[in-house]
Design a protein around this nucleic acid. Structure first.
Lengths: 145, 145
DNA sequence: CTCATGAGTTTTATTTTGAAACTAATTTAT
DNA sequence: ATAAATTAGTTTCAAAATAAAACTCATGAG
């Protein structure tokens, strides 16, 4: 794959993102790390992912600059994985995925993302707004990637 | 240790979303359909995806209610795939992925998502906002998935 | 009617994933 | 201090998913 076509719509910002995140597990690992689950075995317990695949994903997320791997105690061998600023940058992706499911799934238990402004304690939301910060309904949008 | 997840980590809104979208291609198909590329062969040309995989993804996106498949002319055999409202609901996901890449990739050609309000022609933006729709910096956020 | 196009399906090879067992180092318990 | 249990993976092998190409078979254009 990844052949070099001159006019290549596959090579765009979305596919760049998906080359790191476009699989069944990566975003769930990111979610767990943001939740504070940062050890190999706790992640495996939480996700029930195959251990070899987890090792692979952690390595690729580290290489992508999304996680940092560091020993728990200096020079130790026990590791932990923590979120980088680039990882925090994925919060809008996670929130919009959660809200999409909440909005559009027919399931009983609709879970909304809850994001809190630490300074006010207030709940915040993700959305599309115009220059005056007024929300705009989705049906009114046209997208140009 | 933040053991404050009262939510089921295995079956959550994110993994629900990823069971439809969590692969290499689905979101790129969605992007193309939103762009107006809605025929099997044009999608294949655009994405260089294997034809059997494309057929699979289109079927699963249709089953998920993201796309509708319909004949171009009544009772015809030539088909086209078009976005449902649920598909439009993915715009924030796509936009936040694009913006993430633009913000955090080291590449030269950073592409920002451009979303336009069809009624005004004005460009709009996606972000995390408080109840007054004012944007909030990422560092101020705490998440509870 | 003929030929090119559209929308897939089939076939086969390659890659990725998953489950389980296996290391080797490191804590913890006795 | 020694034994037992944890941690953080790796290895192995089977099963599933993906890719590339060839193959249908109906339709539309000329």
């Amino acid at each position: 794959m990844t052949t070099e076509h001159e006019q290549d719509p596959v090579h765009c910002a979305i596919s760049d993102a998906l080359s790191v995140l476009g699989d069944r597990w990566s975003l769930l690992v990111v979610r767990d790390v943001l939740r504070g689950i940062n050890r190999f075995d706790s992640l495996q317990d939480s996700l029930h992912i195959a251990r070899n695949i987890l090792a692979q994903r952690l390595a690729s997320l580290e290489e992508a600059g999304v996680l940092v791997k560091s020993p728990i105690k200096p020079n130790g061998k026990r590791m932990c994985y923590n979120p980088t600023p680039k990882c925090l940058g994925l919060i809008p992706v996670l929130v919009s995925l959660i809200d999409w499911t909440a909005n559009w799934s027919s399931e009983e238990q609709k879970r909304w993302a809850k994001v809190i402004d630490k300074t006010t304690g207030e709940e915040v939301k993700i959305g599309i707004v115009d220059n005056n910060n007024n929300p705009i309904p989705m049906s009114q949008l046209s997208i140009q990637f």
